[in-house]
């Protein structure tokens, strides 16, 4: 059984058709890529999978279960986590708090614990904190744990966001341009982190990318989206050579190849 399966997904914004007849099969442990020019509908696909938008047509199956139209936090709790193109960190909160809050669905102490500070809450909070620190160490930002995120360098923020996404204990991780705006060194580190996440936690990863280099290094299969439709699917090399893809990127070839 495939982990994530999307069938004939279509979405309209008013009269505008953002995604048309989109299909996807993501196997456990796979790393897939989604590329395409700006405005092709890549982030919309992510928003549809995570329940931000309810699709006009089509079905989304996660572990064989229909999750179409479910509310975002339920989908996330089932095991689909994501990062955002513009990160969307919580600006008044510390690094540690980010990774703790993302474990929300794993809290069982309930309101009684929250209001009265029961023994169970103390125990659970200690566990949450321990797990948070281990994730922060894994992405290498533990020493900033008590800092408010807005004061941190960009690369660190990106990694905090990664740790936050992992804290929900996902089976599928959706990464929306994880290397956007990074310098070559930060880029290399991020690729290492993604690979580590994949290898150590055995997670399936679906990522949107602009830089072909990242896609080439990480992905087994790549889809190309243009005007909301998939125009090519295959290994990174096949897709890069596809005439339709080259045409879609016409005038932007330099960026694709780079």
């Amino acid at each position: 059984m495939s982990l994530l399966r999307i069938e004939n997904l279509t979405h309209h914004f008013g009269g505008l058709r953002a995604v048309k007849d989109y299909n996807l099969v993501l196997e456990p442990g796979q790393i897939r890529g989604l590329i395409g020019p700006n405005g092709a509908g890549k982030t919309t696909v992510f928003n549809l999978i995570t329940g931000v938008y309810r699709p006009t047509e089509g079905r989304i199956l996660f572990e064989g279960r229909d999750i179409t139209g479910m509310r975002p936090h339920r989908i996330a709790a089932l095991g689909i986590s994501r990062t955002f193109q513009n990160m969307q960190l919580w600006r008044h909160m510390t690094v540690l708090e980010h990774v703790k809050v993302a474990q929300y669905s794993q809290i069982t102490y309930g309101l009684v614990g929250a209001f009265f500070g029961t023994a169970r809450r103390r125990w659970e909070e200690a566990e949450i904190e321990r797990k948070a620190y281990s994730l922060l160490e894994m992405v290498g930002v533990a020493r900033w744990a008590d800092q408010v995120v807005t004061n941190l360098p960009y690369g660190v923020q990106r990694r905090v966001e990664m740790a936050r996404a992992l804290a929900t204990e996902p089976k599928v991780l959706l990464l929306d341009e994880p290397t956007a705006g990074m310098n070559p060194e930060e880029l290399k580190e991020m690729i290492d982190i993604i690979r580590q996440v994949h290898d150590r936690l055995g997670m399936s990863i679906f990522l949107i990318e602009h830089r072909m280099r990242v896609v080439m290094e990480l992905c087994e299969v790549v889809q190309t989206l243009n005007f909301g439709e998939v125009i090519a699917e295959g290994t990174p090399d096949e897709v890069r050579a596809d005439p339709a893809v080259i045409e879609a990127y016409l005038g932007r070839e330099v960026e694709v190849v780079a």
Binding site: T50, R71, P72, H73, A76, F84, Q88, W90, Q103
Partner: peptide, 8 residues
């Protein structure tokens, strides 16, 4: 949005 995506 981010809170929802993080299971809250």
């Amino acid at each position: 949005g981010a809170a929802e995506a993080m299971t809250v």
